[in-house]
Design a protein around this nucleic acid. Structure first.
Lengths: 406, 406
DNA sequence: AGTGCTTTATTTAGTGCCGAACAAAGCCTC
DNA sequence: GAGGCTTTGTTCGGCACTAAATAAAGCACT
């Protein structure tokens, strides 16, 4: 039988979680504003908040401003009602953060990591267990960002060539070891989720988040939630073919992928071929050369920008986003990419699309891990059930919060 | 204020419409099967069908087969409980069909049409009024397929360069003239909707529908409903840049668009440049030459296939569909495209994506217009509210069906 | 001050849908 | 054919949410 055309729509009991999530991300808000933001009736908000106040999760604060009528009573979380651990897994290290509902990071750590080790998953669990033990307060769950494909956030079966993992049951192992809800997602998608909570998502509902760094990635956000494709593999724009004559071999096995031209390894290789870099030098030195005015280095970045611009024009035609957000550990070289990018990108867009905004965001080292934590912190807002059963568990934990009132 | 992160989710009252839509497209079905297909509880189906039977819209039929237990009573629409008019607008003609809920076409017509005429919209309304007058039975609404961008199905503001229309208020004009619900959509998206109802949608929920013909288009279906992008412009893959050195000028104003290489006009132009076609000859003769074994013509199609294959590989990486469906008035030449396509497409896919199925569907002249009609016929199944207020009106008309019982 | 207007919050009656228990109707095995 | 198993369909109590009416609280005019 055909899969039902309508996705269960998981009715019921979303509003209390949504209210908590909203208060966590937006701060004090009046009942009327909550009702409008969540598109539910004011009556519902009255009922729900009455219950939340009785349970000690939410409290009334001062009066808000009048907008021409009776001013609202602001409601706020009693306390940072929950936190989450986020981890980004890479080929050589783990980045781990402890974050609160409002997106502030309370602690941050980096650990060496060998994904090829036979007990790699256990080591990952150990590192997370340590972070969990150090956490102070009520912990909602653990988010994991993976450079690869994840079948579903809730199950967490991972296939990641760069880590040498195939069908690794990351979710199951970590859940068993930690006894907490665990959400696993492609690393770029975690950034897209974080962006939806704390970044572009505040202003827009449909956009793409493009990462520039070791690889080229893309998270697609549609109506406020991350679009994953049929098997969690949407947004792999690093492997869009960009060269008619095949081009360099990519790590994925195909030829002429975008990433094989403008990924970090490709840029370094080109820099060495041009004699710009010595053996031990990397992309950092390449950028320094361009900063210093080296025309060969500048041309190199400019070519990369042109290629990226042309490719993103295709992505924009396919997805039709409101805006494009650029991010990633390579973003500090963007001024050099930009010259090639802007011209090529705009020239290849159809007129109705030509003014789509492209914005860059500053980058911080813990950004990947914060994205993973955001996965957990966003699940109360996840109406479509992308986070599945594990999201339910996070919501359940949010409800039994021990309060922690002073 | 930021647009709410959750799309209203339009609670309530969806099930009766969904039941009618399901019975219309699937034929007689037992209550238990309906409940499973719609993912609602059997209790709800009992209640809803009781009401529908009382109102004369649905009737019990013979017993079904036993699946090891009590056999179900099949339920069916009392009658083809409604029909819809669909029209496809092109630069030189209108194709109009009258279709029933199950997708059968009861009448079909083609009228000359000049979209540049100052009263073009009134002429369109006249042609549709005639079709409406000729319709026998209960009419649910009118669907319009447009080769261009449509802001939203329910409002129907059209920007279509090929028709010379900018911000044309197609929906408003037709609604005023016809007094019926009118849904307007990009023509490729109407095919995607039809596919969701009667084609690939029966087996899959996330896929892309690619049209080959005058232009190259793409409808993206996600979880059973059409993905439109931020402004209804998603899927414009005909304007993905495919040539690093700019390439031929496209109708959209940019250079090197896919469509400028493999659209019908481009193929004909290339055929003429190669001396394969005389002045008055077109793509039909080009295909005939390839059929007859002309190697130059064959190479021409093969090159087009390679280019399409490479581009679609990029689309597959971006969207991650379960399958790719090929369609369109140019599909009869597919065997010639295919040689170039298959090799190029597969070679540029990453391993995990390499086995994505590509299927072609037979083409008929009224297919575009049937797609437009499907827009209306699908709106009872439209849980996400893509069809908006006009979809509500279609549902309302479905409910007050005059029955027409024998 | 008084009257109206606007916005916020609560109360009340009602609806759509669900879960669980139960009844009905066919196959199976002994 | 008697009971058991399986699947279908119904009943009933309950819950989440809503619309509409009402109260409450501020501003803006006279």
């Amino acid at each position: 039988m055909r899969p039902a055309s309508r996705p269960a729509s998981s009715r019921g009991d979303l509003v209390p979680s949504a209210v908590l999530g909203l208060l966590g991300t937006r701060g004090p808000t009046s009942r009327a504003d909550i009702a409008r933001a969540l598109r539910v009736s004011p009556a519902t908000i009255t009922q729900v908040t009455k219950d939340l106040i009785a349970r000690g999760l939410v409290a009334e604060r001062e009066r808000g401003k009048s907008h021409g009528g009776r001013p609202g009573r602001l409601l706020a979380l009693v306390d940072a009602a929950g936190g989450a651990i986020g981890v980004k897994v890479t080929a050589d290290h783990l980045a781990i953060v402890d974050a609160r509902l409002d997106g502030t990071v309370t602690s941050s750590a980096v650990r060496p990591f060998d994904p090829d080790a036979p007990d790699a998953l256990d080591r990952l669990a150990d590192a997370l267990a340590e972070a969990v033990a150090q956490h102070d307060g009520h912990l909602l769950g653990v988010g994991v960002g993976i450079p690869g494909s994840v079948d579903a956030q809730a199950s967490g079966v991972v296939t990641a060539p760069t880590l040498g993992w195939a069908e690794a049951r990351v979710g199951d192992v970590l859940r068993a070891a930690l006894g907490l809800p665990v959400l696993v997602e492609n690393d770029v998608n975690t950034l897209a989720v974080a962006e939806a909570l704390y970044g572009a998502g505040r202003e827009h509902s449909t956009y793409v988040v493009v990462t520039i760094g070791r690889g080229i990635g893309c998270g697609i956000v549609v109506d406020g939630s991350v679009f994953r494709g049929a098997a969690g593999g949407a947004g792999e724009i690093g492997h869009i073919p960009v060269d008619p004559d095949d081009g360099p071999l990519c790590g994925c096995g195909a030829r002429g992928c975008l990433e094989a031209w403008v990924g970090e390894a490709a840029l370094v290789r080109q820099g060495r071929e041009l004699g710009l870099l010595a053996e031990a030098q990397g992309v950092h030195e390449l950028r320094a050369a361009a900063d210093a005015g080296d025309t060969a280095a500048r041309d190199l970045f400019e070519r990369a920008g042109r290629l990226l611009g042309r490719t993103l024009a295709g992505v924009v035609h396919t997805v039709d986003p409101e805006i494009v957000v650029l991010l990633g550990e390579g973003i500090d070289a963007w001024p050099h990419w930009r010259r090639g990018f802007e011209e090529s990108f705009r020239a290849h867009l159809m007129p109705s699309r030509r003014s789509v905004p492209v914005v860059t965001e500053p980058w911080a080292d813990d950004r990947w891990a914060l994205g993973a934590a955001a996965l957990v912190l966003a699940s109360p807002l996840d109406a479509e059930g992308v986070s599945g059963e594990q999201g339910e568990l996070v919501r359940a934990r949010l409800h039994v919060a021990d309060g922690g009132a002073p």
